[in-house]
């Protein structure tokens, strides 16, 4: 397989190419900008894994494609040459080499991938069952199978991404029940008495989402958080995360759920902790039956502000519109 160069030894050329490929791959693995912003404690873990896989993939891609192109040019058929190529049936050591290297790579990747998954909280399913199953008893009680078989309920693990090994069995700071339905997400805060169409969470706190679906399968995806979990009718699932930055980010349904699946989008709003307290108090009042109090808290202009900004209206236009009878 050695190249027949008269001046430069082929090993030197190979070495240079190898270094160049390695350098480029490492650089591209770290600077690919393919993934969106990182919003959760898990996101950097996932991105590091992806970047390393991308780095290895880039190197392999360049080597294989480069070899293909080089081979096609160097060993192209010359007109008039009717002879065959050299009779080489194989090379055992070479074959062992290119079986062993990928095996090594995928096993290391596999172990590293599982480790990342563990750090993200993918493995702690035991503690959660004991800790949280009381909540789902209510939901599942409506299902005849579970009524007739309480054992099933008690044993049923809750799938998803749960507490990280560090958090262990500590209860989360805030729990939100997430219900998927065609074509919306409903967020209920059992401890706060709030129901919302958007997910509001405080930054830096340990949030646990209890995810269910009412009608068909949905998938709760937070692209900036690198988290996704199917919402399954009759089977509760969960996601647990810490938001690391404030702002508005998309919630996407990632499992085909019907004709308007593409429109099943919502928003996660990550608040600074004090902002979140304000949001809670406003919404507790807003969802209180005493309507006068609720209206008094915010002017119409304030309440509509989010929507008017989205529609591209400025404050004066809104004020003018509000004044009209």
């Amino acid at each position: 397989m050695a190249k027949k160069k008269e001046t430069i030894p082929s090993s030197l050329l190979t070495l240079t190419i190898g270094i160049a490929v390695a350098a480029f791959s490492v650089w591209y693995g770290q600077n690919n900008h393919l993934l969106p912003e990182q919003l959760s404690s898990q996101a950097p873990l996932v991105d590091d894994l992806f970047n390393i896989m991308l780095c290895i993939a880039t190197a392999l891609f360049l080597l294989v494609e480069g070899t293909i192109i080089y081979t096609l040019i160097r060993f192209r058929h010359r007109p008039g040459d009717e002879t065959d190529g050299e009779y080489i049936e194989g090379n055992f050591s070479l074959e062992v080499f290119w079986t062993a290297i990928p095996t090594f790579i995928v096993i290391v990747l596999g172990i590293y991938g599982v480790q990342v998954y563990n750090q993200m909280g993918g493995f702690d399913t035991v503690g959660q069952v004991a800790h949280h199953h009381h909540q789902h008893q209510v939901q599942l009680a409506s299902l005849p199978a579970d009524e007739s078989n309480p054992m099933l309920l008690a044993e049923r693990p809750e799938y998803g991404v749960g507490a990280t090994p560090v958090e262990g069995l500590t209860p989360p700071d805030l729990e939100v029940d997430v219900l998927g339905m065609q074509y919306a997400w409903i967020f209920t805060y059992p401890s706060l008495g709030i129901t919302s169409g958007e997910l509001h969470v405080p930054m830096g706190q340990d949030i646990k989402l209890n995810i269910t679906a009412q009608d068909v399968l949905h998938a709760f995806w937070l692209p900036q958080f690198r988290l996704k979990q199917d919402a399954i009718p009759g089977q509760p699932t969960q996601l647990r995360f810490v938001a690391t930055k404030s702002g508005h980010y998309p919630i996407v349904c990632a499992e085909l759920c019907g004709a308007y699946h593409g429109g099943m989008r919502s928003e996660i709003v990550v608040h600074e902790p004090d902002e979140f307290v304000t949001w809670i108090s406003e919404n507790q009042v807003a969802q209180n039956p005493d309507l006068e109090q609720a209206v008094a808290l915010r002017t119409d202009g304030d309440r509509l502000q989010d929507y008017t900004t989205q529609m591209g209206l400025d404050a004066t236009t809104v004020q003018a519109a509000l004044k009209q009878p």
Partner: peptide, 14 residues
């Protein structure tokens, strides 16, 4: 291969 790791697949799936 990248999709074969569950941690990354959580993001990329579907």
């Amino acid at each position: 291969v990248t999709l074969g790791t569950p941690a990354f697949d959580l993001h990329a799936h579907d």
